[in-house]
Design a binder for these strands. Structure first.
Lengths: 256, 256
DNA sequence: CCAAAAGTGTTATGTCTACACCCATGA
DNA sequence: TCATGGGTGTAGACATAACACTTTTGG
């Protein structure tokens, strides 16, 4: 609860007319892990820090929560400021981080949000010298690239969350546009889960209007010809979950 | 990240030698949803508030995070103070809540933790007049019982999380003791998911030493006789997930 | 008609479910 | 020996995976 109970720490009990400022004060921030699919790889939007600490280091975008807004609103504001997209429903909270030394200057508790976009706009020009870049998450997960603060851990948790949500929610459709081919949708699962999926079986898994509704349009085929792919839009079933179960890499049932 | 970026809100950029106290200050608390299985129902530990606001209302236990401890440590401390059990590994963070009006007195951001215990000790006597009680979560989920602050929402999220973790983690074994019968373990799934499971099929699902290791001991049978149940302890496979997949109540694949 | 990629059929294998049945034990 | 659960067998429905095959299009 939001007040200390008097049962086991009576010394921390506020008097009836206590001063709220008598309790430890924290800064509260919201960090947004913006993920997208690019070159068949899961990539994350990073910005280069322009000031101390960690000046010049890469970090995920974020900012302070204002006292008058909710956490969700703060995350939506950050997402809009950073990418220009206004997509509050795409945001999913996935964790809170409050280690005392996570920011060298002050006590900061941050709440991590996840946003999946089908296209990350190029950085808005003319605002500042700060850079933005899309980086494959694999570089962060395997330690080839380090980030400011505890942002490596935050990205790791976000990716874990994406892998889970792909199975239990309709997150997969957020990686693709309003209309998409089955190959595009399949590549989402392949990139995020790191597996190969048989195109024929994948088609059967999502067959039916509940999952994919034909638009009647087709893609342009590639430079060497080939049959154009049918374009679909997402059906209603995605609201309640996903059509595929994550392949269990190891069979946890012991033999016999 | 933990500092505002200068790219889109330059007015919020701190000067190099800025004063940390210039940023909005929040109280940060940790609330612990303590769940257990009692009378074959999922129940939550509530305490009755002794002071304003919401005096006399039921709430989940919690308290302020100290600047020198992590969020996990704060949750472990609250759990110990409230129940006397020291079980940090049982704690799982599941959400953060920071609506501006969630506490009428001040701006409080709280982080929700979940703890599953096999037995909730009776309230520690002699500390205070505050009451503690185990309440079926169903009473809260269907609105028959209201709680202080936004604690109904927090309990709802915690229960959602338990239902999910039962499938993707070894949470089920935390509901039972070090040694348990298959009937006990099965009742965990039945109570949390609200389903009936065939005892024969359940046995097959968890068969194998990876999941359940026979202890060689048996239970005492009931008053009317009956075959004593074998006692098992949890195997190693629970560390990587659970043996059962949650039954999908509706088949989301559309016919043909 | 050829290349390329979409889309279909088929079969083997594995998993879930229901339910009949047997077994071990204390009263 | 009876009642009471624990524990096993089995058959059908259903899901998964592999892969050969057919279709559709642009060049």
């Amino acid at each position: 609860m939001t007040l200390p109970t008097t049962r086991h720490q009576p010394d921390a009990t506020p008097p009836p007319g206590y001063d709220p400022r008598a309790f430890p004060a924290f800064a509260v921030t919201v960090d947004v892990v913006i993920l997208t699919l690019r070159d068949a790889r899961l990539q994350v939007l990073l910005i280069r820090r322009g000031g101390a600490p960690f000046e010049g280091a890469w970090a995920i975008p974020g900012g302070f929560k204002r006292p008058t807004e909710t956490l969700d609103e703060a995350a939506a504001r950050e997402l809009t400021e950073e990418t220009g997209v206004d997509a509050a429903p795409l945001l999913r909270q996935f964790g809170a981080y409050g280690d005392p030394d996570r920011d060298p200057r002050m006590n900061v508790v941050t709440v991590g949000y996840l946003a999946v976009l089908r296209d990350v706009p190029p950085p808005v020009a003319g605002t500042d010298a700060a850079e933005a870049a899309l980086v494959p998450v694999a570089e962060i997960l395997d330690g080839r690239r380090t980030l400011a603060f505890d942002h490596e851990r935050i990205v790791r948790d976000a990716v874990d969350r994406v892998r889970l949500e792909l199975e239990v929610s309709g997150l997969a459709t957020e990686f693709v546009g309003d209309s998409f081919t089955l190959a595009e949708l399949r590549s989402v699962y392949e990139a995020v889960w790191g597996v190969h999926l048989d195109a024929a079986n994948f088609r059967r898994s999502v067959a039916g209007d509940a999952w994919i509704v034909p638009t009647g349009h087709r893609t342009r085929p590639g430079p060497n010809g080939g049959r154009p792919a049918e374009l679909y839009r997402a059906g209603a079933a995605w609201r309640t979950g996903g059509p595929l179960r994550s392949p269990r890499t190891i069979d946890r049932r012991s033999p016999t």
